[in-house]
């Protein structure tokens, strides 16, 4: 269970609160610059909120003893130093959380990078970098996944691959928090954020309300309809 409780950062986030419930895919939607990435970074202990708390299973991320076994996160970029091979990157990550080395080859296979395992991360295409990031997220086989804009910049084949991957995670019963500025994946719950404030949350049907589609609801909630 992910719980964000009245998290604020001056000028960026204003009392943001929501939950991502176990075993469900929660879509965290909002236009670019709405505060999605800031919220995710606070949840993962990378940035500090001015006020409020963000917890995973009632614990702040920073106090998880082996965080990779609890939460897998995908942020911008692969996280690997350009000069490092995909395998070397995953190996140090595995060592940092006392995970068996065998997991490295397992996750490389899970994201389809086995053939490129010895390639330096700096030579990866954007789609491959994203997959390497996912491999890192899966390393500890975590029950919770936090994915920030996983579709960004992907070509159609990459988008298709990412959809299939997310479907698999959902059927495996993982808790998924999926931040996106697009409504391109079926979700169980929706949280809509705009200008640093949560403007709607609930099931897709609840958020859609009287609008013709969830997309219409999203556009009118975020004021993007004026475009």
């Amino acid at each position: 269970m992910i719980s964000i409780d009245r998290v604020s950062r001056p000028g960026i986030l204003h009392e943001v609160s929501f939950e991502a419930r176990p075993g469900r895919v929660t879509g965290f939607l909002g236009p670019n610059g709405a505060g999605k990435t800031s919220t995710v970074r606070i949840l993962l202990g990378l940035d500090r909120p001015a006020t409020g708390t963000a917890t995973i299973n009632s614990q702040p991320y920073a106090s998880l003893p082996r965080p990779l076994t609890v939460v897998g996160a995908l942020l911008d970029g692969s996280g690997a130093h350009r000069a490092r091979t995909a395998r070397a990157h995953l190996r140090w990550l595995a060592a940092s959380n006392a995970l068996p080395r065998a997991r490295v080859d397992e996750v490389l296979e899970a994201v389809g990078l086995t053939a490129s395992a010895g390639k330096r991360a700096g030579r990866f295409s954007l789609g491959m970098s994203r997959r390497l990031g996912l491999a890192a997220a899966l390393l500890g086989d975590p029950p919770v996944l936090v994915l920030d804009e996983p579709f960004n910049g992907l070509d159609p084949a990459g988008i298709q691959w990412m959809r299939a991957f997310l479907s698999r995670c959902a059927t495996e019963g993982r808790t998924v928090l999926l931040s996106s500025h697009l409504l391109d994946f079926p979700v169980d719950d929706v949280v809509v954020i705009d200008h640093g404030r949560v403007v709607a949350r609930g099931t897709p049907a609840e958020v859609q309300g009287d609008h013709d589609s969830l997309e219409d609801a999203f556009l009118s909630l975020t004021g993007a309809a004026t475009w």
Partner: peptide, 26 residues
């Protein structure tokens, strides 16, 4: 090496993010 950009596609991204996700106790 932690602060070197990881690629041209994401100039703001660096390895420190992965490091801190794996070892959040700074």
């Amino acid at each position: 090496s932690e602060y070197t950009s990881t690629g041209d596609d994401s100039p703001g991204a660096h390895q420190m993010t992965a490091t801190l996700l794996a070892m959040p106790r700074r």
